[in-house]
Design a binder for these strands. Structure first.
Lengths: 248, 248
DNA sequence: GCAAAAGTGTTTCATGTACACCCATGT
DNA sequence: ACATGGGTGTACATGAAACACTTTTGC
């Protein structure tokens, strides 16, 4: 056995958005001719092979930039998928033609990203051959992308419990109901709304803006914001204190 | 710009052990001739380039197998390091010679591993050109391996708070003091020993064996074990219940 | 005035935290 | 008998969970 040299390295992005009701994922359309010579259409995660002189994160940003305005977008490396046959047969043929390469194996590094979905972003991706899908309603995807999506959903759930990343999916000003719906959608649970509000409002990082909803056929909700910079500052501090004794 | 094709993919392992006092990491000796033509010795993380027909996890196991008996070893994918110049100059020259390849860039996928250090394993690695180092006392390492180690320590700390992985570093039968020392070493804190015992013993998964220490110049400590299979079973269950309503 | 979603408090229970002394063994 | 580390209990504070009705707006 000797080291492999004829492989490729790709970066795929699982880009999540939230429309107020359900969690969405961005998928790009792929036109494909299968082994029977019949043209088929399916969907895949956005991604690309890496270029020289770019690291993986830059590659992920490059892909993100094709579909969104990449200002200040949450992006995390998730996992590498490396089964030797994860892209093979027709799929490998497609890939070699599409990218003009001649590879026998593709290892992919998956990033996941959280974006603030607004009306513009919901529509503008369509011109670029992409679409937002309800995560619940995705069935088949190209290659192993369905498994990758499933894994990303798992990781996202864990991250939601560990870090305040919900705000990356919400508009800068959001209502507590939106926040609660988001947690419910991602964790797949129902949350008591009095306890949820109590907990959220006890946080130092969530502040009422004073602005309220307008033109709604019910009591208008207050808009809140998340003070991310204060959170980051305080948590650097907390981290430092961990190296000093807890008790004294 | 076009896809990169002349790169290599490696797997490096951060292998942690615990000797009862401090956290150790396994490093392998590297004999190296620098650009001035002077032979130098330094240390690096164990690792290798990937082979054909093996996925990354298998590659990590292969490396683990060089130094340890790979039965039932905790192994997790951690992070990919991909800066285009992370291996360059002399380091790249060394790598191309050592592995008989001709590559311009090496992307590495890092796994971390937790092993049960016993007397045998402490010594046996030395014949294979490796050594256990106290993590606190590691200064320089080859390539970017020092940064990789630093990152692994961070991740390990977080994992320790999230999952019961301490037991992967301890012998099958351990005393509560050993367990406590391990948490203290990894988290860099002191823990009140009454509260610690209370918390640990309230767990369903930690059980007294009935055996006690022998030949110690103080009150002999009870040995405990961690029931990993029960833990895994119960947590599968918990996971399923998350898809049903918490409240009703 | 009615439909629709926002907003609000109290009690109970479980968990976390602070804290100091006696016990069993080998030498 | 003494040195060494093992082992124990209580009081207090904090956080989680259960639970139902009033308020504000548009139509």
């Amino acid at each position: 056995m000797s080291p492999q040299t004829n492989h490729s390295l790709s970066v795929d992005c699982v880009i999540f958005g939230f429309d107020g009701k359900s969690l969405k994922v961005l998928l790009v359309r792929r036109d494909f001719i299968n082994e029977a010579g019949i043209p088929v259409v399916d969907y895949k995660l956005p991604g690309d092979l890496i270029y020289e002189n770019e690291d993986l994160r830059s590659s992920a940003y490059r892909t993100l930039g094709k579909y969104t305005a990449t200002r200040d977008i949450y992006l995390r490396q998730m996992h590498v998928f490396s089964h030797p046959d994860r892209v093979s047969g027709d799929e490998l043929k497609w890939l070699n033609e599409y990218y003009h390469v001649n590879t026998t194996r593709v290892v992919t590094v998956v990033y996941y990203s959280l974006v603030k979905l607004d009306r513009r972003l919901l529509v503008s991706v369509e011109e670029k051959g992409a679409r937002w899908f309800d995560v619940e309603s995705v069935c088949r995807l190209a290659m192993d992308h369905k498994q990758i999506l499933a894994r990303a959903l798992e990781v996202l759930g864990k991250q939601f419990l560990a870090e305040p990343i919900a705000f990356e999916l919400l508009p800068r000003k959001f209502t507590l109901r939106q926040l609660q719906s988001l947690y419910e959608a991602i964790l797949g649970i129902e949350i008591d709304n009095r306890n949820f509000r109590k907990k959220v409002l006890s946080s130092d990082y969530i502040r009422a803006t004073g602005e309220k909803e307008k033109n709604v056929a019910h009591k208008p909700a207050m808009y809140y914001t998340f003070d991310k910079s204060k959170f980051l500052k305080d948590n650097r501090l907390k981290f430092r204190l961990n190296f000093i004794n807890w008790q004294v």
